[in-house]
Amino acid sequence: MMERKDLASWLEGAPQDADYVRGSALGLPPDGPGSVAPFGCRVVTLLIDWAVSSGVSALVFSYDPLATLSLFAAMNLVMLTLWGATPGQLLMGLRTQPVARRTPMLLRAVLRTAVMLLVLPAAIWNRDRQPLHDVIAGTAVVRS
């Protein structure tokens, strides 16, 4: 016979391992430089990057939505390829680094940016604090 605890076990959320350290499956340290970036910092970096794109779009393109999106994508591609960090990541002391496969950063940046622009993959995260666009590109955002 089923018990009430069996029916409502999902209320506690997904099963969790209390001893699991975020980033350990990626070979990242538990804390300090090279550890997985906190969620709040990632949100702030996104807001900074979008603000930079919006500002340039407002000055040059009369805040055209397509221009803003194109500037955001171009900024991500160029900055990640050349310096491994977007302006927001640089300001927040973060960087994007490869954690899987041996692919040039340009290809990773193209793949990461293309998937991120779909928006929904950016909302799906794994237990290592990696959104889906980072998982697909084989990257992780870490503390500098």
Rank of each mutant, 00 (worst) to 15 (best):
Q16A: 09
V44I: 12
T139L: 00
M105E: 05
V78F: 12
V43D: 11
V115Q: 03
L28D: 02
M92G: 09
S53Y: 09
S62H: 07
S54K: 08
V99G: 09
W50A: 14
F39S: 12
T96N: 06
P33Y: 10
V135A: 13
R42V: 10
L82V: 14
E3W: 00
I124V: 11
L91E: 10
L11Y: 02
G93C: 08
L66V: 07
T86A: 01
G34S: 03
S144A: 05
A37Y: 04
A25K: 14
G23P: 11
P65Y: 09
D17N: 14
R4D: 09
V44M: 13
S9H: 11
A100D: 08
L94P: 11
G13C: 12
Q97N: 04
L90S: 11
G84C: 05
L69Q: 01
G55S: 03
R95A: 02
A58W: 07
V141C: 02
Y63H: 12
A140H: 10
G23C: 01
L120N: 09
V56D: 06
G32F: 06
M79V: 00
L82F: 04
A18E: 15
M79A: 07
I48K: 06
A67G: 03
T139E: 00
A114V: 14
Q130H: 04
L77F: 09
M116D: 00
N126A: 05
V142G: 04
N76Q: 14
A8C: 07
S53G: 10
L59G: 12
V142W: 03
T103P: 02
R102E: 15
R4F: 13
L7D: 07
A100L: 13
M2W: 11
V135W: 09
V21A: 11
V43R: 02
V36N: 02
A51N: 01
L28E: 01
R95V: 00
A100H: 14
D31N: 12
S70D: 01
H133Q: 11
P33G: 09
S70V: 03
D49A: 02
R112V: 01
P33A: 15
S57I: 04
L117N: 11
L111T: 12
W83M: 10
T86N: 01
